[in-house]
Design a protein around this nucleic acid. Sequence first.
DNA 1: GCCCAGGTGGGTA
DNA 2: TACCCACATGGG
Length: 228
Amino acid sequence: MGEKAEVRGSSPKGALAQPLLEIYRLLLSRYGPQHWWPAEDPFEVVVGAILTQSTAWTNVERAIANLKGAGVLSPKALRRLSLDELARLIRPSGYHHAKAIKLKVFAEQLRRYGDDLGMLFALDIPQLRQELLSIHGIGEETADSIILYAARKPIFVVDAYTRRILRRLGLAPKSDSYSAFQALFADNLSAEEGLFNEYHALLVRHGKEVCRKAPQCQDCCLRSLCPY
DNA sequence: GCCCAGGTGGGTA
DNA sequence: TACCCACATGGG
């Protein structure tokens, strides 16, 4: 059926299109553009996406600064480094031994694309996602973060903040699965890279500041939509 | 000292 | 599918 002629962000695709767009509008109004991802190039985005797994971004910044300082923020340099030396450099990001292995594995896999992220990112979204998920250490959120923020393709990133905020607003899907939360956005918003980029970044920004405990709802910018 | 942070993989029932 | 756990540093 013809459902393609949509005006940017204003034509509802599903029943939750209105509330989701309202959340976005309120968050953008409150915080302004977040300019994600905070990195100089796509490879740095990938490294940051792996290092930030269950870790505060401030700790990731130290680790990335160490990698830059050592001049090893490239696939080839990461492969040349010993596992212990790499772990030492990224130590501030936590889980450093496990993450050193993950970075090594990714750098190794990138060889198949001539160390060229552009070649990897030439795949369409489903193929790219499958390829990323096949790599040890890259799960759904990390894969989607790479697709959205490094490859700049429209896919919605679901994280702990996304789930927490949607639950609080009573908009969470029946299933608690990653795909159910992702489908909520995919089914109700137009698939625009810029929108998905900013929306996820705003959810993280908002989640960091509020929505941890109910009392904070008094000055929450989403309180008009919140049942609490 | 405690809890949490922009998760993932492996194991078990 | 649904839990459990290990992985670890740094800030509040």
